[in-house]
Amino acid sequence: MTKKRTKIHALGGKHGATCGELLAILNDYVDGGVAPAVCKELETHLAGCNPCRVVVDNVRQTITLYRKNKPCKMPAAFHDRLYTALRNCWKEAGPAKKPPKAVKSRT
């Protein structure tokens, strides 16, 4: 009779052995930077482990939410102040027009 594997489960239980591994490479997995063979292994794990699948989904949703939820408009008064400052700065320190090419003197 073979001994059953009883590794501590990364998410709290003791079923399965790859939840910890999944957590360790969660970033690469979510960002699509995992080698196809490893990816397949993780997907097999996810197919049989709902809590891990939900965590991966939640992380993806979190990222999407922050990406979509760009903060608000700038206050109008600040907007005007910003453009005034920009124009002043442009006059003083903006990129100078190309200086005319220096003519080499042969003297």
């Binding site: 998410l11 239980g13 079923h15 482990c49 709902n50």
Partner: peptide, 8 residues
Amino acid sequence: PGAHAAAT
């Protein structure tokens, strides 16, 4: 968390 194994 504790129910993970059972849930699985």
